[in-house]
C-alpha cells in the first residue's frame, strides 16, 4: 500500500523482481475455460471422512484447496472424475480431523473455492500478512470452544490448506495482541514452565519494551 501510492522519486518505478512470465495463463479465453472447468468440477461432490468416522460431502474444486487431498486424488490417476464421486470416502488420518473440525473446514472451503488465485505479478507477501481478515472469515473463526478452534487449525495444517491456517493464526494473534504474559497464559491455558528466576531474567532483558507503559 505505502509504496504503491507514494510520489517518491523511484517508487512505483522500481524493477519488480523477476520479469513477468509469458507462460502464465494470460489469454482471456483460456482463463475463462479454466474457470468454467473449475466450476464444473465443483459440481462433482466427493466425500471426506474424519478421523472419528464422520463423512462430509464437499465440491471437488473446494476439496482440492487442501493440497493434501489434491495430491491424493492425483495419485489415483483417475481420468474419469465422476468415478471419484462414487468411490468410498477419502479418509483423513490424523487425530486433528475431528467431526466438528472437518465440518467447519468443509464450510470454509465451500465458501472460498472461487477465490481469485494469487497473482504473482501483484502479490506482496508483506501486505497480505498485514491484511485484516474479511468479515465472513472473522465470523467464521470466532468459535467459542477454544479446543475446537485449535483442532481446526491443526486439521487445516494437516490437510495443507494455507488460507485457513492463516485465518486461524491471525485470529489467535489478534486475540493476544497487546496482552501481558499472564493474560495470554490464562487465555490460551498455557502452563508457565519457567522458574521465577528464569522469568525475571527474561523480563529484565526486555525491560525496555515495558519501560514507559
Amino acid at each position: 500500500m505505502n509504496g504503491e501510492y507514494s510520489l517518491d522519486t523511484t517508487e512505483g518505478m522500481a524493477a519488480s523482481g523477476d520479469p513477468p512470465t509469458n507462460n502464465a495463463v494470460d489469454d482471456y479465453d483460456a482463463e475463462e475455460a479454466l474457470e468454467r472447468q473449475r466450476e464444473e468440477e465443483n459440481k462433482i461432490k466427493i466425500k471426506l471422512k474424519s478421523f472419528e468416522g464422520g463423512v462430509y460431502e464437499c465440491g471437488l474444486t473446494a476439496a482440492k484447496m487442501s493440497v493434501m487431498v489434491a495430491n491424493m486424488l492425483d495419485a489415483l490417476q483417475e481420468t474419469d472424475l465422476t468415478k471419484i464421486a462414487t468411490r468410498e470416502p477419502i479418509p483423513l488420518q490424523n487425530d486433528a480431523v475431528t467431526n466438528k473440525a472437518l465440518e467447519k473446514i468443509v464450510e470454509w472451503v465451500d465458501h472460498h473455492w472461487d477465490d481469485p488465485p494469487i497473482d504473482p505479478d501483484f502479490d506482496d507477501e508483506k501486505e497480505r500478512r498485514n491484511e485484516e481478515l474479511s468479515h465472513w472469515d472473522k465470523q467464521f473463526i470466532d468459535i467459542a470452544d477454544q479446543g475446537e478452534l485449535f483442532d481446526i487449525i491443526a486439521a487445516a495444517n494437516f490437510m495443507d490448506i494455507k488460507g485457513l491456517v492463516e485465518v486461524g493464526a491471525k485470529h489467535i494473534c489478534n486475540k493476544i495482541k497487546g496482552k501481558s504474559c499472564t493474560e495470554v497464559r490464562e487465555m490460551l491455558k498455557i502452563h508457565n514452565d519457567f522458574t521465577p528466576e528464569e522469568e525475571a531474567a527474561i523480563h529484565k532483558e526486555n525491560e525496555w519494551i515495558y519501560a514507559k507503559d
Partner: peptide
C-alpha cells in the same frame, strides 16, 4: 484439549503473525 499445545512447526507459523513488539513482550509465556 482447550490449551495451546501445538507442535513446534505449527507454533512458529501461528506466532509469525505477531508484531515484533508483541514478540518481545510475550517471550516469557513459556
Amino acid at each position: 484439549p482447550r490449551s495451546f499445545d501445538f507442535s513446534d512447526e505449527l507454533c512458529v507459523h501461528i506466532l509469525s503473525y505477531l508484531s515484533l513488539e508483541d514478540r518481545l513482550r510475550l517471550e516469557s509465556v513459556c
